[in-house]
Design a protein around this nucleic acid. Structure first.
Lengths: 237, 237
DNA sequence: AAACGCGATTGACCCAGATCAATTTTGGCA
DNA sequence: TGCCAAAATTGATCTGGGTCAATCGCGTTT
């Protein structure tokens, strides 16, 4: 799953009609600043399974996710993997203090990112405190999510983990028309297991059990919540 | 363990000779700014077991830890607890997006904090981007620690968790004279268990096992690393 | 349409760590 | 100094989820 071919579009795109304009870091910029900002980033496409950056790589760029889903993970020397999060459109990646990425990121399905070279981006932020504040907000949101996930990893049962995962994931989906009870799951069972601190077999068995009990239906590419209240009760427990 | 008596010192202290001056948020302020800053915070003492703030409380203050250790934790409805971190001098607490604390914090032993009312502090940060940058740095450091901890919670065995905990905790101690092999543990076994996602019995048994193997010695108020290399090997695994 | 490959599911069994239950040790405090 | 309560340790037993091993389902290739 190493990157093979990467498509770069030097320009031809405008921040003003970018899909994440309202939610990403750039939401802190006014139209005038946006014009300048536009020159800093370039759209880059990754196809399914490609690695955008790896843990321990020197950080040369920051990334703004525009389209698709990415898995963010850390590996132990013996190959055990923990997925520390999934990145969705609007998420901002690459901030660190060490000068190196502290996790790896790869594309789940096709992904488009807006890539910024570290130095010019740093200079741009320098005299734009609102942008810095926006970056800080995103970091604080991530931190809160990270703490929630620690509770899940350290103190919840397999059933609770899976149920909570479905609900959190549903919540993160852009609501097309009301809160849908269909939860698309673009990632593999292995990804879900590595996110929840379980094995693939336990994830599969838990889905099957929930389906037998009538709480969910396993559909192609996702899960349908037949009885959301039941799933919520399981997750809260 | 609810707060009973809290000692407040209206002033009589100066930022310039504060113990965390060099490492905390205030390290980003020059001497002139420090004079102003001094009026914003007040020193507050908490004694062992007192709660500084609780999850879901409306955030009215930020806190800069000056002395002592705090446990930061979240509770599930049924009482299960996950400690999401320990706060040491120099740590900054209270940032959030929701307006409410997203975890609880209480003192382990005597604690001194520098407390800032939210609004005045917010105004002060407003026109001081270096302070905002410093706050952001601390948040990013926390985030990195949180991700490391997710790996520990989701993918490491009990032995690895305990060994890694000892090493990380040793690393966080202020080195008085060279890296000491004595690790002070001011928190209870229950705290350690709730931090590592284990039970108190497993933590106790693991310590005993490490001691029998000659890797550590259990001493009053902490652990002595008799064979640090052995402990490191266990933690890396 | 047969053969392939790969992710997902299912079954049988096992074990690390939880649970339940005593002690033992420690730290105030009268 | 002795007493009490809380914390820590230790032992016996149990079990949720891991491990190992087929098998299934399904989209691709030829």
């Amino acid at each position: 799953m190493k990157p093979s071919v990467v498509t770069i579009e030097p320009n031809g795109h405008f921040c003003s009609d970018c899909g994440v304009r309202a939610s990403a870091v750039c939401s802190s910029l006014d139209p005038a600043e946006l014009g300048e900002f536009e020159h800093l980033g370039r759209r880059v496409h990754f196809s399914s399974g490609e690695t955008v950056f790896s843990e321990e790589d020197i950080t040369t760029s920051f990334y703004n996710v525009l389209e698709g889903v990415m898995r963010l993970y850390k590996l132990l020397p013996d190959g055990r993997r923990q997925i520390v999060g999934f990145a969705l459109p609007g998420d901002f990646l690459g901030m660190n203090l060490s000068g190196r990425h502290n996790f790896s990121a790869d594309a789940i399905g096709a992904v488009t990112v807006c890539q910024f070279a570290k130095a010019p981006f740093g200079r741009f932020v320098e005299d734009r405190p609102q942008l810095l504040r926006r970056i800080n907000e995103l970091a604080i949101r991530e931190l809160s999510q990270a703490r929630d996930h620690m509770v899940l990893l350290g103190r919840r049962s397999a059933d609770e983990k899976v149920a909570a995962f479905l609900l959190v994931w549903r919540e993160r989906q852009p609501a097309p028309k009301g809160p849908s009870d269909t939860v698309p799951l673009p990632m593999s069972r292995q990804d879900i297991a590595d996110y929840l601190g379980l094995t693939i077999e336990t994830v599969s068995r838990t889905f099957t059990k929930l389906e037998r009990h009538g709480a969910i239906e396993i559909i192609h590419g996702g899960i349908s919540l037949l009885d959301p209240a039941r799933v919520e009760a399981l997750a809260a427990a």
